[in-house]
């Protein structure tokens, strides 16, 4: 009986060691590397980076942001429709594009206008100070000074899932458009495809 107990304790300790032996302590990884996790059902951070890289190169190469009159194009960020099965932060994509566009010197982005309201409400809020006697009215922003956008960046992310036996697959289609707001014409369109596949083992997870 005693020997049985000792054996059980030893077995538990052994399995405990095995379990902890499989783990790893948290480590920081280089976000610009390919060390991140890859899952089939989701867009992982590397996918956003790859898509942004591809779309940034494409939009800058197109030359559509450059205006003939020398003025910088003002671009607004419109809606990126999420047609996937996942909750997706589309900002992870659009923020990278707007950053690259701004740094290119060809365009500036407006935060005063957005498809779902302004991304920065301050532009409108500060104009409410026009009636506030506490503020020096000469320093308060006046109406009629905010620059309206020339172009709008919008898009859609679509996911198609397929399963065959133990193999599952996800296909993500990212499509972006740059619309000239004067004419309503899409002057640039870019796409990025992400396809992922995994085969589950017969046993285990």
């Amino acid at each position: 009986m005693k020997i049985n107990k000792i054996a059980m304790v030893a077995a538990l300790a052994g399995s405990g060691l095995l379990i902890t032996g499989c783990g790893s302590s948290p480590t920081r990884i280089d976000p610009k590397s390919n060390q991140g996790l890859t899952t089939v059902d989701d867009l992982n951070f590397k996918d956003y980076q790859d898509a942004a890289e591809s779309l940034i190169n494409d939009i800058l190469r197109s030359g559509e942001l450059k205006r003939a009159d020398g003025r910088k194009t003002v671009m607004m960020i419109s809606t990126v429709k999420n047609s996937t099965y996942q909750h997706i932060q589309t900002n992870l994509l659009t923020d990278k594009i707007r950053l690259a566009v701004l740094r290119s010197g060809q365009a500036v982005t407006t935060t005063a206008v957005g498809a779902d309201g302004p991304s920065d409400k301050a532009t409108r809020q500060v104009r409410k100070l026009q009636d506030d006697p506490m503020f020096n009215q000469q320093t308060v922003q006046q109406d009629g000074t905010v620059i309206a956008p020339d172009m709008s960046l919008a898009g859609e992310i679509i996911q198609k899932k397929t399963t065959q036996g133990r193999t599952s697959e996800s296909y993500f289609y990212i499509h972006m458009t740059l619309t000239d707001l004067k004419t309503g014409l899409a002057v640039w369109e870019g796409e990025k495809e992400v396809a992922k596949q995994e085969t589950k083992p017969v046993f285990g997870w």
Partner: peptide
């Protein structure tokens, strides 16, 4: 620095030729 400057993977089958492209972040 640019958001487009990341490590990207690329796969080659023997004998395959691939072209990698990039656009400078500014002029």
């Amino acid at each position: 620095d640019t958001p487009a400057s990341i490590w990207k993977e690329i796969e080659f089958i023997p004998g395959e030729t691939k072209r990698i492209q990039a656009v400078s972040p500014n002029a």
